Computed example of a mutant assay.
Amino acid sequence: METGNHASASEFLLLGLSSRPERRELIFGLFLAMYPVGAAGNLLIFLAVGSDSHPHTPMYFLLSSLSLVDFCFISATVPKMLVNIQTKTQSISYGGCLAQIYFCILLANMDSFLLTAMAYDRYVAICHPLRYSTVMSLWICALMLGSSWLIASSHSLLHTLLMARLELLEFCASNVISYFFCDLVPLLQLSCSKTQLNQLMILLVGGLIVFIPFLGILISYVHIVSAVLKFPSARGKQKAFSTCGSHLTAVIFFYGTITGVYLSPSSSHSADKDSLASVMYMVVTPMLNPFIYCLRNQDMKGALRKLVSVKAPPHGL
Rank of each mutant, 00 (worst) to 15 (best):
L15P: 00
L14H: 02
C182L: 05
T195I: 15
S242W: 10
L13P: 02
L215V: 13
R122I: 01
H223G: 00
M144F: 14
G206Q: 03
S266P: 04
E167C: 03
F71G: 00
T57F: 04
G207Y: 09
K306D: 08
P213I: 00
D121N: 13
G260P: 00
I252N: 02
S51E: 11
C172Q: 10
G207S: 01
I74R: 01
L98D: 05
P55F: 06
A303L: 03
I126Q: 04
Y221H: 15
L161I: 10
M280V: 15
G29V: 03
L169R: 09
C294M: 05
W149Q: 06
F46W: 14
F31G: 01
D111M: 10
A142G: 14
A125D: 02
T116W: 12
H315D: 08
H223A: 06
S64I: 05
E22R: 11
S18V: 01
L184S: 07
F211S: 14
C182N: 02
L276G: 00
H6V: 12
V284H: 04
V205D: 00
P21W: 11
A240T: 00
Y123M: 11
R235N: 15
S93P: 05
V37T: 13
T57C: 01
A312T: 13
N42L: 02
G245M: 11
P21S: 07
L14T: 04
V283C: 08
L13I: 10
S91D: 08
V222K: 09
D183A: 15
L15E: 15
G29H: 15
I105C: 11
L166F: 10
A271L: 08
P186F: 01
L248D: 04
G245N: 12
N109I: 01
H315V: 12
M287K: 03
T285V: 08
I258P: 01
G302A: 07
T57R: 00
S64P: 00
N297G: 06
W139H: 12
S153R: 04
L68T: 02
E2C: 05
C294D: 07
G236E: 08
A312R: 13
C182W: 03
S178L: 09
F211L: 14
L215E: 08
P314G: 03
C294K: 00
L17T: 04
F211T: 13
S156C: 02
M118K: 00
H269I: 07
E22M: 05
S147G: 15
Y132D: 01
